[in-house]
Nucleic acid binder design. Structure first.
Lengths: 241, 241, 241, 241
DNA sequence: CATGAATGAGTATTCATTCAT
DNA sequence: TATGAATGAATACTCATTCAT
């Protein structure tokens, strides 16, 4: 159900395909109209696709399942055949969004597996690009949090946590190699992750539409080099609060 | 309605009291029924305080105005005497939260008006501290976005935009003085703002509870100095995507 | 909530009035539109009266609360102000029916307190008369049983059990006085109760419409004297199965 | 469709097999596909058996045809091949129950064809025993009445009416022979029928679990001999209301 | 023949808002 | 002015029935 989400990854992440638990076990009984797995998967995808759009546009509460059924050209009962409740349908759209994010980041990372800094840069660009061209998914994240706050851990952070591992190794390697300053790995990853998360939301919420390639560049520049003109000479301990 | 929000400010931020239409119109006759006005303001504050908590706990849709009335010990009709609709009441709580954020950041900044870098550091700490001790407000921001997406600009970003000015001047001054690298001011401010925004949400959503002073220190360290061990020597242009 | 139901009673049964728990405790707070107890009781009765008819006509499942609201000339929400669920409303109608039965039997019995056999006869007549002229109540008993089978003891039998006491004493007295044969009191009461219950249902379900006074007479004749021409001479033990 | 039901019968009751329209039409070609017919009858019986249990447990409305299909291990469509609607299936279970009652009473009566009073006693016992060991059937009677009130005469009373004949003759014979008092036959039969009906329901609804043989004995004792110690001396006319 | 995928009519309950008192 | 009684629009989910395979 989860997969590569963390915006940094030094190796090709494995996509944990979900189909297993979606397939209905083959009934061993007699003739009759047989269930068609292919057809089921296809229709399930259609519903998720439409639901993603409609939930993103209207939010969870304001979305009537009938709207989704109509848009799909099926009866409401059919939607309920595939997803037992409106909530499950919604969560399926969020999960689907996260899987698509994973694939997008993976693909981008795969092309730069041999140049660590470029790998990081490519990942940052892929992450921002994904959310820029899939604004629906940003909305879903908000609605998930608003509606399921106390019943479910945020899907986004579940994925982030599940896939941080490879990035930690990559970072540690770069520190050992003297490429990065000797800072705790988790501190570095947290700052980068939080910055991307905040940037993504801000882009979306504030309507800020800058050239994404430039934006990624500016972010990387500051992350890599900081904002001070003469950094290390100033010895002040910012850590002390 | 708005006030100092931007997490960086080189001068005592001005509280833009736009709340004209929220305040009960001042009676123009000299003295007379002043006590009533005070009573009204007090009750209005009570309602907002209770509503903040209940909206944060339950979200907008799941909150029944009756719950708020009960908690306040007044009739439902009374709540409607102070706020014409549930939505206006909700928005008033968000605005109230933003004003409190402003005051908190202001106060922290005021103590370091003479040391720019320390001013920045103090602001970062104050910002993270505020949201850490006012988790309600984080929730309200989410619910506002989820429910009012297409009807209202995010109060948070309205405030941010309204109060970025002084920070821009501060930054430009530091660049001119050679303290900061010569990067476009807005780039720097965006990165810092987005990072704080993302950090705040991540702290809240992922349940990450680190020592806040340390967290602020780590953030500042990376912002100021970057993550690379030998920064400027690498001339690579990250801007090119 | 309960009261005299059992069809036999040697003393004026006490009607346990229910109003106590229906009244809303006086709110101690300020002005405003005050709750009006009288008005509430009246409306509650109206709703029960209408609901009795509609539930009896359509059954529980087929009754739409809207039908009741319309018939009452109030909004659906108003019905729900008085009864939190459709089920509670239904059960209230059953209870109301049982209370009315109690009153009817009581009144009839009160007139013959000094002649035990006549008291029994009057009770039998009152019981059959009540259900004959309140066919709604018979229906409610059926629907209650059909719908609440495993969630609630039958209201009818709860009442019957709660009010059998006085009848047991009366019967025992008559046995001691040699008026009745020396049989276990509970056997006698069970047979009479079951016979009345079965007669009531049969009258209702089979559409049998005989003169009720005659019917009561025939029942009493057989109960008192049996069907055998030469009873006690035949010593056969029916008890042995 | 109907059969011997009336609890009193002086001769082997005839099973009125009216179930013509329930049976799958007999194939007129001599032999041929007889096995298929058998298979059909068998499956039909299976479905009725399962449906009886499930309808009794859940009531008509709360029973999902899917539940019955699952329990039978067949597809829902198959159930509909045997019974055109859920209602017809339900009514078939009621009718089946009544036929089983008939058989049970018949068998018991057959053993005492030569002793009228013992025949009556045996019938009473068989009737109470049947419903005691087939509680499902009692439930079905209730649900039938609740759901089909105005569309269908109660199956129970249809059967009762259809089979009262032989009992009337038996009774009249006993009266003529001076065994029973000279009362109108129908009065006697009504009282006995109603008493058994009421006893059966009361046993079921009130959870009263007494030794059935004893119970039958007590009932017979009162029916035969009445409750008065000195019956006929008291000349009072109970008939006058 | 048997099956189960598809359908859509049907309904209890909630709650923002109004307004009589 | 404060109150709470009244209202009715709005909506997820079920399940009997049909019919393509």
């Amino acid at each position: 159900m989860t997969s590569q989400i963390t915006p940094l990854s030094g190796q090709v992440p494995v996509l944990d395909t979900v189909e297993a638990n979606q397939k209905i076990s083959e009934p061993s009984r007699a003739a009759g109209r047989r269930p068609n797995q292919e057809h089921k998967q296809k229709r399930r995808s259609e519903i998720i696709e439409v639901a993603t759009r409609i939930f993103a546009e209207n939010g969870f509460a304001a979305t009537d399942v009938q709207m989704i059924a109509d848009e799909c050209g099926v009866g409401k009962g059919t939607v309920y055949r595939y997803f037992p409740t409106k909530e499950e349908l919604f969560l399926a759209t969020v999960d689907d969004g996260m899987q698509r994010l994973s694939k997008a980041v993976e693909s981008a990372a795969a092309a730069h597996a041999n140049d660590p800094l470029e790998l990081i840069a490519a990942t940052v660009r892929a992450y921002l690009n994904f959310f820029d061209s899939h604004r629906d998914v940003v909305e879903l994240l908000i609605h998930e949090r608003a509606h399921f706050r106390d019943r479910k851990a945020s899907t986004y952070f579940v994925h982030r946590q599940a896939n941080i591992g490879p990035w930690r190794e990559l970072c540690q390697g770069l520190i050992d190699a003297g490429v990065l300053r000797d800072r705790p790995v988790d501190d570095v990853l947290d700052v980068i992750s939080d910055l991307l998360y905040g940037t993504m939301f801000t882009n979306h919420f504030s309507g800020r539409r800058r050239n994404l390639a430039d934006q990624a560049g500016r972010i990387l520049s500051i992350i890599f080099d900081g904002i001070l003109a003469q950094p290390r000479i100033d010895d002040r301990q910012w850590e002390q609060g």
